[in-house]
Write a protein that binds this DNA or RNA. Structure first.
Length: 426
RNA sequence: GGAGAGAUGGCCGAGUGGUCGAAGGCGCACGCCUGGAAAGUGUGUAGGCUCCAAAAGGGCCUCGCGGGUUCGAAUCCCGCUCUCUCCGCCA
């Protein structure tokens, strides 16, 4: 979430940012509400602190008076303290109220979009940051969508997943399972080569962790929740991996921190149904390799670009046609300041599929997480956090199957063959 | 799941009612010493909020978390969480 101090000092910038997220004048009132609530909080605190200071002072004198044998005055001070305690109790109550209200308000304010974020209300307004300039693959008229290919070549089985678990839990088998594993391996290797430290995190996290990266309270309904143990299944490796540095003060020289991790991701996604969610387009469990960076604020946008390069390199290597979108204010995630989406062209479905989302969260997550660093002047400031999928597997598999289908079977991209051990699925 | 022990600053560790945001040590930073280093030596070294235009300086809160007793709590009481040891179960 945003810092109150930032909202106070950059009010115009905050308002403009929220306008980019299509907030109405009425909704924008929250900015004034926040400042007013914070004013209230401050004035209560000043009063409370003064009361407590007086209480502390008097308490100290009581001990001294008793030692001097001045019981009468000591008793008198005890009475004074008693009334101060009552005052303090009331002020503490008011303080908690203001703090609680402030927190509620702050949680409703999304991140302020970066200046380069285009205006817009939805996916149609996203800016094509990097288009695919070469011709798109064209398949013969009898080309099949990936869910039919999956059945033909026994790559994955959604109905079996339904039997075992429920809709949206694919079962990969045979060469399909190997292809999945090869992709994971390939992505992790590339990330390691790019200097990311590999992490195998827990797949379940506690409340504090889910709150740290902003999944709570915004996206509570999208996570699977294990009530008995009060744990959440991770929707992305971002959650446990970024939270490694929750409540941490790093040294400036440790930046950037570069982490990568493969995990299954679990999403309840009570979204839409129909052709667009068929097959692997939208599932409740999918595999993903995530890259995370914790960076100095001055360098975070350069870092974001380097992460785009990294993801581009992966798609180039897989020989998949893709484009990069700069998300508009209306399509951007709640916690992000700037997001680029990668979309791969799925030739059989003849549509673009999102396979990666690379974002700079600036201090929005680190403020909640208390992820800070000591700068050259020994001052403590919030670090910037960034992350990106590199890559999300299910849709990559969908695109690979469709685009690489031939009468002789599915051709495996060159770079994957060392990991799969075969060059075709037939 | 059962029994016991414990939780103090970056780490170790002292502290059983006021003088304790906290001795001492290690580590770290800077300085002195040195030709350079080691050793030695000196100084500094938690975070949040807040007052002040700012600096200097001040106030409040925090000794796992929450509550209670008390004029006053790291210290006493209650609840919770976590860690360790032993037993049980188990990949």
């Amino acid at each position: 979430m945003l810092q109150v101090s930032f909202i106070r000092t950059h009010k115009d910038q905050v308002v403009q940012g929220l306008q980019k997220r299509n907030w109405t004048a009425e909704e924008l009132q929250i900015v004034e509400d926040i400042i007013r609530t914070d004013d209230r909080r401050k004035s209560v605190q000043i009063e409370l602190d003064a009361t407590l200071a007086e209480r502390n002072r008097l308490s100290k004198t009581i001990g001294e008076l008793m030692k001097q044998g001045n019981a009468a005055e000591a008793e008198q001070n005890k009475m004074l303290v008693a009334t101060l305690k009552e005052t303090a109790a009331n002020l503490e109550y008011a303080m908690r109220q203001s703090e609680g209200l402030l927190e509620d308000l702050l949680l409703r304010v999304p991140n302020i979009p970066h200046e380069s974020v285009p205006f817009g209300t939805g996916a149609d307004d996203n800016e094509v940051y990097k288009a695919w300039t070469k011709p798109l693959p064209e398949l013969s008229a009898d080309a099949l969508p990936h869910w039919e290919l999956a059945t033909r070549y026994k790559i994955f089985d959604l109905e079996l997943g339904t039997k075992l678990t429920g809709a949206g839990f694919p079962v990969y088998r045979g060469k399909g399972a190997k292809l999945e594993r090869a992709l994971i391996w390939f992505f992790l290797e590339k990330a390691t080569q790019a200097g990311y430290e590999e992490i195998i995190p827990p797949l379940m996290v506690n409340e504090d962790t889910a709150r740290g990266t902003g999944q709570l309270p915004d996206k509570e309904g999208q996570m699977y929740y294990v009530e008995r143990d009060n744990l959440y299944l991770i929707p992305t490796a971002e959650v446990p991996v970024t939270n490694i540095y929750r409540d941490t003060i790093l040294d400036e020289r440790e930046l950037p921190i570069k982490l990568t991790g493969y995990t299954p991701c679990f999403r309840r996604e009570a979204g839409s149904y129909g052709a667009h969610v068929r097959g692997l387009n939208r599932v409740h469990q999918f595999d993903k390799v995530e890259i995370v960076q914790i960076e100095h604020p001055e360098r975070s946008y350069d870092t974001l670009m380097s992460m785009l390069e990294h993801v581009s390199g992966l798609l180039d290597a897989l020989e998949l046609p893709y484009r990069i979108l700069r998300l508009c204010g209306g399509d951007m995630g709640f916690t992000s300041a700037l997001t680029f989406d990668f979309e791969v062209y799925s030739a059989a479905q003849q549509r673009w599929l999102e396979v990666s989302s690379v974002s700079n969260f600036e201090t929005y997550q680190s403020n909640r997480m208390k992820l800070r660093f000591r700068d050259a002047d020994k001052k403590i400031q919030l670090a910037h956090t960034l992350n990106g999928s590199a890559l999300a597997l299910a849709r990559i598999v969908a695109a690979l199957l469709e685009n690489n289908q031939t009468p002789q079977g599915i051709v495996i991209p060159e770079v994957l063959r060392p990991f799969t051990g075969f060059d075709r699925i037939d």
